[in-house]
Design a protein around this nucleic acid. Structure first.
Lengths: 309, 309
DNA sequence: GACATTCGCTGACTTTAGTCAGAGATATTG
DNA sequence: CAATATCTCTGACTAAAGTCAGCGAATGTC
């Protein structure tokens, strides 16, 4: 692998991206549109697609498609008239409404699915098997990296809904992976527990990684005193793994620690979490003696900050 | 490199393509649109972009953007009113008209160019240098393969405008590459000359490779008698090289020869054309003694058909 | 030179997309 | 229970996109 990582010519990169954008929106965008129309306004077609087989709340549809409330209402009326959709009230809140596809609507959606496959097929058809394989691989790569770029880290309150959501999944993951199982109530370090046992929130910085508004990972920095911080709860959702997100979270937490003037970061980890240990070692964390009584911890790591600033 | 070339699961490939389409049209298409609007209807913006710095015939614009004649006219009127475009008659045919950007229009287009770069930059900005490099490479790969897939081979009359266009460029290429230069008048084999010197067209099958309607390569099969054919004029435009197009042309010509029941294919080539020789050898052509008096030929190749059928 | 054809233009039209204000039903809060 | 907020729907609107028939000028054809 070559050692220089920056492209020698940013203008060439831009040109490549522009060519790509142009080609893809021409070839795929245009085809997509005409394929998906089926003699129906595009807005309605997208709606059928987006409602999906399980139905969807109007709120959700508006958010996802970026539609005006009135406009969406009108589109749904039109689809109702065509007997493709029914709109009913939600059970818990009669103000909210939920759109469902009818039998006919489901059939229509199935057609869209097939057309979408046809489109994919039409891209692959003229290619040699070798090129097909390469195309798929390159598309997967583009997708992976674009999605990676769209993930952003935001500080949130440790007791916010998104933080809670992440922690629940984190704990469920741990319960599966630890040989001894995991019970979040058994040990509470300082801060960042779902219960938050009285530690002031200002002492805990909680980051959530969002992709298109959905949380896909988290990480916390617990400020223990003026010089020492603890890294906790670094977790990445299964569908977001393989993108270096854990490392990104770790870096950001370290940056935050440096901003606060902390000189030492510590963390503990379980023997089952091999990748985590590898990550910490590769980031300059060295194994240190036990510094807490976490029953689930098998290894303790520490890293001095400041020297790398 | 793995030996199996077909993906084990076509449905997974389709799913990958659909995910890609979705992501790209969402992320790039949407951004593109909002970037390119600049408070102007999208149609007008695209038009400014498409007219380009050299101007464009209305015919061409309609084809490229898929616009109705009346609609295009109206869009241009609107741009003329804004002093961005002038529409004048073509020199040779006063019915045809040509749109040109004014000073202001050119400036406007430059802004679009810059915005397009900004968009590219916004995709790269959040990425690590390593991911940037990978993204560019993967985009280039997707582009290369998609374009390759869009190239189609069509039989045309050897004296058609497109065939002539290819041959002119082919001859110009040869003149540059042959040590001894090249004068198409000096030698005329049977068929396929620009002049066509009286050889019945039915004896010559001429293929042109088209990409988006533009010729990007050619190749001919001259049927010499009931059993022997000659491959001639295999050429690929510089901007379409590196996609295996020459091989594709050759394969198609061989298929045509087989359909006609020919048993032997021959061809000659100049010593300067090393890649061509490599191609022919890799396709099973073996060097044979001189069979014609072409003054530019240094090597003669032959391949028996039938055994590979 | 008459005739048909091509090319772009205009007028009249429809459809699609999108916006905004307010009405009406339902839920939440004090 | 009243006030307030939330959610969806309707009516009235605008802008953009697209379609179609026919006109008139320029060109090619017989």
């Amino acid at each position: 692998m070559s050692t220089f990582v920056c492209s020698p010519d940013p203008a060439a990169d831009f040109a490549q991206i522009r060519r790509f954008n142009r080609l893809v929106s021409q070839r795929i965008g245009a085809l997509d549109q005409s394929y998906l129309k089926r003699g129906r306004p595009l807005g309605e077609a997208r709606l059928i697609f987006e409602i999906g087989s399980d139905g969807a709340d109007l709120r959700e549809l508006r958010d996802r498609l970026g539609l005006d409330s009135g406009y969406l209402s009108r589109l749904l009326r039109s689809l109702e008239r065509a007997d493709l959709v029914t709109v009913g009230s939600a059970e818990d809140d009669a103000r909210q409404r939920r759109a469902m596809l009818t039998e006919t609507g489901l059939a229509e959606r199935a057609v869209y699915d097939r057309l979408s496959d046809d489109l994919a097929g039409s891209l692959l058809a003229p290619l040699s098997p070798r090129d097909r394989q390469r195309l798929i691989a390159a598309m997967a790569e583009v997708e992976r990296i674009l999605v990676t770029g769209a993930i952003e880290l935001r500080p949130v309150a440790p007791d916010s809904a998104d933080a809670r959501w992440c922690l629940e999944h984190y704990f469920a993951d741990l319960a599966e992976r630890f040989e001894e199982g995991f019970d979040p109530g058994k040990h509470h370090g300082r801060g960042v527990d779902t219960s938050m046992r009285g530690i002031p929130a200002s002492e805990t910085l909680f980051l959530v990684a969002y992709c298109d508004g959905n949380p896909v990972g988290c990480g916390a920095l617990v400020v223990e005193d003026a010089t020492i911080g603890e890294i906790k709860r670094v977790w990445v959702a299964p569908n977001a793994r393989g993108r270096g997100l854990a490392r990104r979270l770790l870096h950001r937490l370290e940056d935050l620690a440096r901003e606060r003037g902390l000189g030492l970061l510590r963390l503990d980890t379980n023997r089952a979490l091999a990748e985590a240990q590898a990550l910490y070692r590769s980031e300059g964390y060295a194994e240190i003696p036990r510094y807490n009584d976490n029953p689930y911890a098998d290894h303790w790591f520490g890293k001095r900050l400041g020297d790398t600033v």
